[in-house]
Design a protein around this nucleic acid. Structure first.
Length: 598
RNA sequence: GGCCCCGUGGUGUAGCGGACUAACAUGCCACCCUGUCACGGUGGAGAUCGGGGGUUCGAAUCCCCCCGGGGUCGCCA
């Protein structure tokens, strides 16, 4: 090794020790005589002193140093002179008096600061990702990610799971997300697909008798990116035989609770995780991935408006729509401008408009509320009792603001769900140091696809229906409940899983219901169905997203911050400049010719 | 594909119709400086304001188109 110690590990107990350090120049402070270098490596910073009177040659070399030069410095660890300690530095009580120094490599001036925590243009960061990753925040994210994955592996190993790798080049089953395709050189005109997840393979491992499987698996989906979505992401893929829902979910609760305690002990996890019904969270939070760190629940006000003289909303209700609202605490004092912003947000989300009702001032008492204290476009159509009733139902107090949306149920829930999140942000209701996990359950198995005029899977076609509902598959498929579950946390979907179908008969029935011909079924899912005929155990599993978990733990806003080399929104790898054109020869070998685009 | 936001020296910002010959901070370069730690001091270089077109006596600033980026809807079994 070119070094005996890490910069960041040196402490008072090293005083008197002769050390050799190697790393990057974080900062240079040249006093004309003395030169100080903050030398940085993975473990931290330490001050190296170059004294021209005791080490002329080293001092001269230090004079040549610039930011990000790679240098080696040897010398003795010394206690700092009294009064010059730096309490901001872990190594601030000591310094290294260099007497033998070498520049291992020079460096161009970096395109952005390594030694500052500013936000820089993300293009630039991604183009020079190897420099970006030198920044402490990014380095910490890499280490955190390592610890998370290490913890998961140890945790599952201790519980009898074995990690099995599955192939990256697999078969395309054009369902769900768009596949990434890889042309075959050996088989002209044929393609591999990159796995969207190892779903069928892990089920085959259950048939194989693995019983407890997991994998830190790369998954690929050729769909548009988001702050929490990338063309490729990593999931903890997990499957168990002879289990029911509670076995998987209890394991996950234990895993996540222990994981957070291990890697981020400062974060509070609310336990036990609540089990919530899908329909229920849609009603109460307007989202299938609610942020449960604060209330502001959606409340149905349809019956009150049905009794009012507000014909606009009465018509909506008689057309089968709903009127729901949330309470914005303290919103009664909002300016016209602030209310306009909320209104615009509601309209952007597809609502016809946003009805606001300002409930007087904080000095008033709800029982004494009169209509002249209420400010609302609908005020003249409402009675005092009706306003009081709405306030009571939404938990509103004088000084608060009711945000009310009318329309079809799905729209009302979606718009108010977003408004709820917006109010949560504005009022800082979500504690960043709290993780509010929840299990979402009781999803429908199927949903009618109006465009393709057929049934589609809510989750995926391997999800088992609730046994008691199987007869409904023939009569009213929309009523069939799925043995499917999600894990959400702080408004993010973290995991999705289910108990699977394990008989060829039921699986075939589902495929047929989804509109597949028997030929299609055989071509796409023949292997799995055949395997089910050879003694497939009941099984189920789940797949938490590693990127999102690490993002939450790191307190980052996007998963790009916890991926070493992420792609940008247009699915470009700016570090390597991928995708890129290939040669005619490469195409020819793959039996491909490019089409002329319109 | 739709909607919203952003694009000014290397970096981060200010300027939002005339006093802009574009400001500030930092970085960079040179010189000075022996206890600094975001060291300090003096001086210097560095931007045709993402690109194109238009309005105007005059455009970084207003309008249109394009490009790039971010957020989101669609999409993500």
């Amino acid at each position: 090794m070119l070094k005996t110690h890490h910069c960041g590990e040196l402490r008072k107990e090293h005083v008197g020790t002769r050390v050799t350090l190697a790393g990057w120049v974080d900062r240079r402070r040249d006093h004309g005589g003395l030169i100080f270098i903050d030398l940085r490596d993975r473990e931290g910073l330490v001050q190296v002193v170059f004294n021209p009177e005791t080490a002329r040659a080293s001092h001269d070399i230090a004079g040549e140093m610039r930011s990000e030069y790679v240098v080696r410095a040897s010398g003795e660890v010394a206690i700092r002179p009294a009064g010059t300690e730096n309490p901001n530095l872990a190594t601030g009580e000591i310094e290294v008096i260099a007497d033998d120094t070498e520049i291992l490599n020079t460096a161009r001036t970096p395109p952005f600061y390594i030694n500052r925590e500013n936000d820089f243009d993300e293009n630039l960061r991604l183009r020079y990702r190897y420099l970006d990753l030198r920044r402490p925040r990014m380095k910490d994210n890499l280490i955190l990610r390592h610890r998370v994955v290490k913890f998961i592996r140890d945790f599952l190993d201790a519980r009898g799971f074995i990690e099995v790798e599955t192939p990256i080049l697999i078969k395309s089953t054009p369902e769900g997300a768009r596949d990434y395709l890889v042309p075959s050189r050996i088989h002209p005109g044929k393609f591999y697909a990159l796995p969207q997840s190892p779903q069928q393979l892990k089920q085959l491992l259950m048939v194989a008798g693995v019983e407890k499987y997991f994998q830190i698996a790369k998954c690929f989906r050729d769909e548009d990116t988001r702050a929490d979505r990338q063309p490729e992401h990593t999931q903890l893929d997990l499957e168990m035989s002879f289990v029911e829902e509670a076995d998987i979910l209890d394991l996950m609760e234990e895993l996540f609770t222990a994981l957070v305690a291990a890697v981020k002990p400062g974060i509070k996890v609310i336990t036990p995780f609540p089990h919530l019904a899908y329909a229920d969270v849609m009603e109460r939070y307007g989202s299938d991935k609610p942020d449960l760190r604060f209330g502001l629940e959606l409340t149905d006000l349809s019956d009150i408006f049905a009794r009012s003289d507000f014909t606009l909303f009465r018509d909506t209700i008689s057309d089968g729509g709903r009127v729901k609202g949330i309470c914005a605490p303290g919103g009664g004092a909002y300016s016209r401008h602030q209310i306009d912003e909320l209104n615009r947000l509601a309209q952007t989300l597809g609502a016809g408009g946003l009805l606001t009702i300002a409930l007087g001032t904080t000095e008033d008492r709800l029982e004494e509320l009169t209509m002249d204290m209420v400010k609302s476009a609908a005020a003249k159509f409402m009675t005092t009792d009706q306003v009081r009733e709405m306030a009571a139902r939404t938990g509103a107090r004088p000084g608060d603001l009711l945000l009310i949306v009318a329309g079809p149920t799905d729209l009302v829930n979606r718009v108010l769900g977003e408004l709820r999140l917006e109010m949560g942000r504005r009022l800082n209701l979500a504690d960043p140091d709290t993780f509010a996990f929840a299990f979402i359950e009781q999803f429908p198995l199927l949903r009618w696809d109006n465009e393709q005029k057929r049934w589609g899977s809510e989750h995926h076609p391997f999800t088992a229906p609730v046994a008691a509902d199987i007869p409904l598959l023939d009569t009213s498929p929309e009523k069939v409940r799925a043995r499917h579950y999600d894990i959400v946390c702080n408004g993010l979907e973290l995991a999705s899983g289910s108990i699977r179908i394990h008989t060829a008969e039921l699986q075939t029935k589902i495929f047929r219901l989804l509109g597949y011909s028997d030929d299609d079924i055989k071509e796409r899912f023949g292997t799995l169905l055949e395997a089910f005929e050879y003694g497939a155990p009941p099984h189920g599993g789940i797949a938490p997203g590693i990127d999102r978990i690490v993002m939450l733990l790191a307190g980052e806003e996007t998963i790009r911050e916890v991926i070493a080399f992420p792609k940008n929104q247009s699915a470009t790898d700016l570090t390597l400049d991928a995708p890129s054109a290939v040669t005619e020869e490469q195409l020819a070998e793959l039996h491909l010719r490019l089409r002329e685009e319109e």
